[in-house]
């Protein structure tokens, strides 16, 4: 994990995040990755959790092709060609995971995180979502938008940190939260 910080933060939002905040992941961790795209960040996670598994969900067929060829090389990546907005469709393939990493520039990004956490996130699991404030409201201040969006997170989430990824990614805000499934 320490050496990852030496990489260029513009390479991936996750590295930009690591520049601002240190987190540790178990080598056996299971990760659900929503919005995997062509798999740049997925391949990083694959190195971080060599004994774990990454369920990479992507709904666009062009990047999915690249993701499939990547998953043929790296053992612990499972490509899932599904809409992250409809977790019911892929619930039979995914186990409970330790981390949900979300990087989909959608307007209802937070709702998607809620839905997926309800089905797949372990108790005490971690949610890390890269909120693209521009795709929610492009005219307002990102800080304002992010603090409003955080309110929409499920009450079962304990918000740990809100980090603006300036200057590496201007429109993105990282939200880190811990999940408590038993809480009503």
């Amino acid at each position: 994990m320490e050496r990852l910080e030496l990489l260029n933060p513009k390479y991936s939002k996750f590295i930009a995040f690591l520049h601002k905040k240190k987190i540790s992941l178990d080598k056996n961790a299971k990760i659900l990755y929503l919005g995997a795209a062509a798999g740049t960040t997925v391949s990083l996670f694959s190195k971080i959790v060599p004994n774990g598994v990454i369920y990479a969900v992507e709904f666009s067929w062009k990047p999915m092709r690249k993701l499939i060829s990547l998953s043929e090389d790296l053992d612990n990546i499972i490509p899932l060609f599904f809409d992250a907005n409809k977790p019911d469709e892929y619930k039979q393939y995914v186990e409970l995971v330790d981390l949900i990493y979300e990087d989909i520039s959608q307007k209802n990004q937070i709702e998607i995180a809620n839905k997926n956490a309800e089905l797949f996130l372990k108790d005490e699991g971690l949610l890390l979502t890269m909120l693209k404030t521009k795709s929610i409201d492009s005219t307002r201040n990102p800080r304002e938008v992010a603090s409003e969006e955080v309110q929409r997170l499920d009450t079962k989430f304990n918000i740990l940190d809100i980090i603006i990824l300036n200057p590496f990614y201007k429109d993105h805000t990282a939200i880190m939260a811990r999940y408590n499934h038993k809480k009503e």
Partner: peptide, 9 residues
């Protein structure tokens, strides 16, 4: 699992 998912995709 991977075999299945790749075939599906």
């Amino acid at each position: 699992l991977k075999k299945r998912c790749i075939a599906l995709a």
